[in-house]
Amino acid sequence: MVSVISNVVTGHDDMIHDAQMDYYGTRLATCSSDRSVKIFEVKGTTHTLIADLREHEGPVWQVAWAHPVFGNILASCSYDRKVIIWQEDGHKWKKIYEYANHDSSVNSVCWAPHEYGMILACASSDGSVSVLSYVSDTWESKKITNAHSIGCNAVSWAPAVASGSADGSNNRAGGPVQRLVTGGCDTYVKVWRLEASGEWVEEFKLEGHSDWVRDVAWAPSIGLSRSVIASCSQDRRVIIWVNDSTTGVWHHRELNTFDDVIWHVSWSVTGNILAVSGGDNKVSLWKETLEGEWVCLNDSAAVQNAEQRTL
């Protein structure tokens, strides 16, 4: 059974849109419609506010931690069309970069696998996706224009793996190909590939949803020769997309149709459990059995079923 082990009183004055733990599980970042980003130090069940960041001018939709190899760095995005990158310096948090080259709300930010360097993808309601790279002590940006015709809601990076078709075939330099997945208001899930020329190209357009795609999440690699993406939508459905590297073809199956809009999907670090949250204020956990069936782990019967099938 899943149970609550602690609650965090954030002190936000409005709706909280995102909450993310850092790599080590010692820091919690939250963001809210009150235009603030808050950072808490986590020790057991104790949470201490260490930063209250207020540079945004609108609701803050999402936060994302960079890999600790780059230091304590956090990105946030907002309705104010801005992306802000924050860094901890001597126990104080400060803004180190602000990107304001979108024409509408920035809805999602996601850091690339650290093997590629410090790179951040940003998805916007203006339909474009920006890719920000820290190179030679400066930030450079590239934009995928018209990624989704009526707005882009979510972006997620493929894991950095050395082989396979859709999950990291080698580029001309011998390294893994960088890929992104995006979800948009046009109902499409799209996979993008970075060419040797430095341009991003649309590799696949995945059709299966019938309404706005609210979130996408590329599963971590666990050594299997396949790629897995989860997507969720205004149509109340979650879809699992699977690409077998032997064929290079994406197949999909519906995980479930829920009672309300589904807002977020998130994988466990091992990529075998999917968390789903929606407009009914519920979170459900799903696991794939050895037979390829997806079962819900939120009640005792489902847990027992899953354990029996995975033995």
Rank of each mutant, 00 (worst) to 15 (best):
S300Q: 13
S78E: 02
D186T: 12
T30D: 09
Y24S: 06
G127C: 04
V129R: 02
E41K: 07
D244A: 07
S108N: 06
F258Q: 11
G184I: 11
T46C: 09
F204H: 15
V189T: 11
G174F: 10
Y116C: 05
D235S: 13
G168Y: 05
E291G: 08
R54A: 08
R214Q: 03
Q304R: 14
G184K: 08
T187N: 09
S130Y: 00
H114C: 15
K282P: 00
S266T: 14
V135E: 12
R309Y: 15
R309F: 15
D14E: 14
E293D: 13
S105Y: 15
I96S: 06
T289A: 11
H56D: 12
L120Q: 05
K142A: 14
I119S: 08
A301S: 08
V109Y: 01
E98H: 01
V265N: 04
V269W: 01
G164K: 08
E293Q: 08
I262P: 03
R81N: 13
G58D: 15
I150D: 12
D186H: 08
D18I: 03
R253F: 02
E254F: 01
G175I: 10
L28T: 01
W61K: 08
V161I: 09
C296V: 03
P176Q: 10
G25F: 15
R237M: 11
K142Q: 14
Q304T: 09
H67L: 10
Y79K: 05
Q20E: 15
A302V: 01
